[in-house]
């Protein structure tokens, strides 16, 4: 255990059975030097107030459960150290732009429903039998899409995106980045199939490139970059179809 420090956590509380408006509850705790915000929340739940509700599991930044607003910024709380905040008070709220089910638990149905619409699975040219072995793919070809395959669906990007905050019909950063992840995969031929959703009004063209999705991404996925790449590639497709209407696009 490291050095302990007095920390005040202001935590967003909302229980729909008893409240119509959220409140903030203050917990004063002795936090250890090596504690992340999630450790403090677990300490509160185990020792002070077992009614506080939040999601968490792997506590190593890969399951994507524990995204919350920490002092107004979307963060994975298992990777966010309390010692990095100069202020004695740390304010914890549910992720922005999502309906709140209870306390720090948000409703992410919207994302779960949007995800399949971008066909985030491999669409090969033709099905290859297993006995023909693997599709060959050089390390360079893997590198082309690898970054966009690192998304843990933590929803931080959605809560940083004002476009999504203003209009929740926007397909959004994580889902679109996954579309580009498959579009860039040398084994995939589903670009055309994904065009319908990706280039719809709610798709890439809704993005005005605020760029905050990339800034807050804890896994360095760069969804903003992915969306701009999608814009360029689908715009080129369209231009080619105008110039050479007879030639099929690949």
């Amino acid at each position: 255990m490291g050095v302990s420090d007095r920390t005040v956590l202001e935590v967003y509380r909302y229980l729909p059975e008893n409240q119509t408006e959220p409140t903030f509850q203050t917990y004063e705790i002795d936090s250890q030097d090596n504690w992340v915000v999630l450790d403090a929340l677990n300490h509160i739940k185990a020792e002070i107030d077992s009614t506080l509700s939040f999601r968490w599991s792997c506590r190593m930044g890969v399951c994507g459960s524990c995204g919350m607003m920490v002092n107004g910024e979307p963060k994975l709380t298992c990777e966010t150290f309390i010692r990095d905040y100069d202020t004695m008070t740390v304010r914890i709220e549910p992720l922005n732009h999502f309906p709140v089910i209870r306390d720090l638990v948000i409703n992410m149905d919207d994302f779960m429903e949007k995800l399949p619409t971008v066909s985030p699975w491999l669409i090969p040219d033709q099905d290859k039998p297993l006995d023909e072995g693997e599709y060959l793919q050089t390390p360079g070809q893997v590198a082309r899409y690898k970054r966009f395959s690192m998304c843990i669906n933590c929803m931080l990007c959605y809560s940083a995106c004002p476009v999504y905050g203003l209009d929740s019909s926007f397909t959004g950063p994580a889902a679109l980045a996954l579309a580009e992840r498959y579009n860039l995969d040398s084994r995939d031929h589903g670009r055309k199939e994904r065009a319908a959703t990706v280039t719809a009004h709610e798709g890439i063209w809704e993005c005005t490139y605020v760029g905050e999705c990339t800034q807050v991404c804890p896994k360095d996925v760069d969804p903003a970059g992915a969306i701009q790449m999608l814009k360029l590639s689908y715009a080129l497709d369209w231009a080619k179809s105008v110039v050479m209407p007879k030639r099929g696009r690949s």
Binding site: Y14, P16, T20, P22, N96, H97, P99, V100, I101, R102, N107, P162, G165, L166
Partner: peptide, 12 residues
């Protein structure tokens, strides 16, 4: 359950 939605303020 009644879920809480907080619209973005105008001066966001």
């Amino acid at each position: 359950t009644r879920e809480l939605t907080k619209p973005l303020p105008r001066n966001w």
